[in-house]
Structures are given as C-alpha cells and as structure tokens.
C-alpha cells in the first residue's frame, strides 16, 4: 500500500496563495459572507500562516502553507464519536460529511487547527453553481471539513493506471495545490516508495515536520534551510 505524503519546500515557497485558491476551486469550498470571514469562520483547507523572526529592520517573514497534515497517528480520528473522520489504508485521513454530527471534537483535538466547520449552510450564487467541481461533494451546514489531499483525484489516477495495467507512477497523483504551485514548492507522492521524489526530499537535512514532539507523525513534510 502506498503512503501518500506531501513535501513543501518553504525555501521555494513565496507565499503567493495560489495553493489556497486552487484548493478552493477544486474542492468547492464555500465562500462565507464577509462579516463571517472576519470573525474567523473563513474556510481554507489550505491555509497560509505568517511567521515573523528577528527584530526590525532585520526581520524575516515566512509564509507557511498549511493543509491537513494527514497524520499517521491522527489525534482527530481518535476522538470522533461516529467514525466521521478516519485514516484509510493509504494514510489519507478522510472526513465523511454525511455522517458527521458536528460536535467539532476533532477540530478541538487537532493540534494544527487544520479543520474548518460549516457554521451556516454554504451558499453560492446560482450562476456559480454550474462551475462547481462535480467530483467533490458539497458540504452541508453543521459538518466539519478539511483537506482530503484531493482524494477524488487518486481514484481517477488509480482507475487510469488500472485500465492501462500499470502502477501509478511518481507524480501522477497530485492534489490541486501542488499541481499549480508557481514555484513547484509542493511535491506529492508515495513516501514508502524509496524511488519517489517525496521520499528523497523527506530524507533531506532541511526536512522537518510540525510539532514532531507530539508524535502525530504528520505526512506533510516541510523543507527549510535552518539558519
């Protein structure tokens, strides 16, 4: 079984926000009303964090794209009371919108604040409804949602590979964010495959994972030159 993982090269990443937009478009993420957005109910599966280091004027700003980390040891799935979030065999942490009862325990348990909640029924102007991605289901009010590593794409990729009677090649399956990154800072692949780029990069001396001390084993690996 492959184990899908993402590597984000923070040295390359400019923080342009393309991954956020690609994600919103691909996954039919609702756009909440402006008032809602500014009280912290904005929905980004791929979020952008800004960190500051140093003293003015020698200040360094780093922007860190933050998807769901698809932990190998996810704290969120342990607390779900109804199996609405779970980890599958390939290491993807999924969210079942139709089963979620909206207790938000998983959001509370996630140390990375990676999940978002539908506080109101997501709404689109009728015109925009025609350009929704048919591969991704729409969420309803009162459920938790999060980055799925574009799992719907995996299904297609698998199907293609299956039809052509071959294995999935490295880089064939990539989430929307990695696909459009203008600096190719987001890599995606099977980290169990020693030949994959993701595996090689994860062995880099620059690699680190967020809050490794928690033992969550995130499958999103950051690369950053430590200075």
């Amino acid at each position: 079984m492959p184990k899908w993982a993402m590597v984000i090269d923070l040295d390359k990443c400019t923080g342009c926000g393309d991954c956020m937009a690609a994600c919103k478009l691909e996954n039919n993420i609702a756009i909440v009303s402006p008032e809602e957005a500014n009280v912290g109910r904005v929905m980004f599966w791929m979020d952008m964090i800004t960190t500051y280091e140093g003293e003015y004027p020698n200040i360094k700003v780093k922007r860190i794209p933050k998807p769901c980390f698809h932990c190998d040891n996810p704290p969120c799935t342990r607390v779900c009371p109804v199996y609405a979030t779970y980890k599958n065999d390939e290491g993807l942490v999924g969210q079942i919108y139709h089963r979620c009862i909206g207790c938000r325990y998983c959001m509370v348990a996630c140390p990375y604040t990676a999940k978002v909640f539908n506080w109101y029924e997501p709404k689109w102007p009728d015109e925009f409804k025609s350009c929704l991605n048919p591969d991704v289901s729409l969420r309803m009010v009162g459920v938790v949602e999060k980055c799925s590593f574009c799992a719907h794409r995996l299904i297609k990729v698998k199907e293609n590979a299956d039809m052509e009677e071959r294995e999935i090649y490295d880089g064939e399956y990539s989430p929307a964010c990695g696909e459009s990154c203008p600096t190719n800072a987001i890599y995606f692949g099977d980290i169990d495959n020693k030949e994959s780029q993701v595996y090689k990069l994860s062995q880099s001396s620059r690699s680190y994972r967020e809050m490794e001390n928690l033992g969550t084993e995130p499958k999103v690996i950051y690369l950053s030159k430590r200075e």
């Binding site: 109101y120 029924e121 009162g142």
Partner: peptide, 11 residues
C-alpha cells in the same frame, strides 16, 4: 440556521 448563530468560530 446552523451553529453560525453562536459566537463560536475557528479556532
């Protein structure tokens, strides 16, 4: 209307 009527938010 949904839990939006409360003051809760992210985080």
């Amino acid at each position: 209307y949904g839990l939006g009527v409360t003051g809760m938010n992210q985080p």
